[in-house]
Amino acid sequence: MEKAAKEIRELKGFLPRSIAYAGQINEDFAEGISGFYKAVWTEREGGISTKQKHLIVFSIACSSNNIQSAVKILERLHKFGATRIEINDAMMLAAWTGGIQHFTDFSAAILKEMERLGF
């Protein structure tokens, strides 16, 4: 579990709770979840960049009204150099796919966090 946890910490910048909890249940389970994280978040030649992946999951979190997750993802977007325009585009896509009510729900928290992070 320690090797997998170290790899994911290096890849994501933190150890996701799911891996920590899985490690308390079963080492093989933790390894499996770690493998899933690596498969999703590793950059591959010709694939989607880490920044683009974070923009996509940010938009999905917003469109499903998962405000807490969207706010956390903003920190990752800041780390990976996303621009305010890119984030605004992702928010507009979220409004398109999730509906204007979700946009109304998540906008205040997201705009406040964007201001805090300096976007």
Rank of each mutant, 00 (worst) to 15 (best):
K6R: 14
E7A: 05
E10T: 14
E10V: 14
E10K: 15
G13R: 14
F14A: 11
F14W: 07
A20L: 10
A20D: 15
A22W: 04
G23C: 13
Q24I: 02
Q24T: 03
I25H: 08
I25K: 11
N26E: 01
E27L: 14
D28M: 06
F29L: 14
F29R: 05
A30H: 01
E31Y: 04
S34P: 12
F36P: 12
A39S: 06
W41L: 13
T42C: 14
R44W: 12
E45H: 07
E45D: 13
G47Q: 10
G47R: 11
G47S: 11
I48N: 06
S49W: 02
T50F: 09
K51G: 10
K51V: 11
Q52N: 13
H54E: 11
H54T: 09
L55S: 10
I56E: 07
I56T: 11
F58R: 00
I60F: 04
I60E: 08
C62V: 00
S63K: 00
N65P: 02
N66P: 00
N66H: 02
I67N: 03
S69K: 15
S69T: 14
A70H: 04
I73A: 04
I73V: 11
L74Q: 06
E75T: 03
E75S: 09
L77I: 12
K79H: 13
K79Y: 15
F80L: 15
G81V: 02
G81N: 05
R84P: 01
I85T: 10
E86H: 03
I87Y: 01
I87L: 03
N88Q: 14
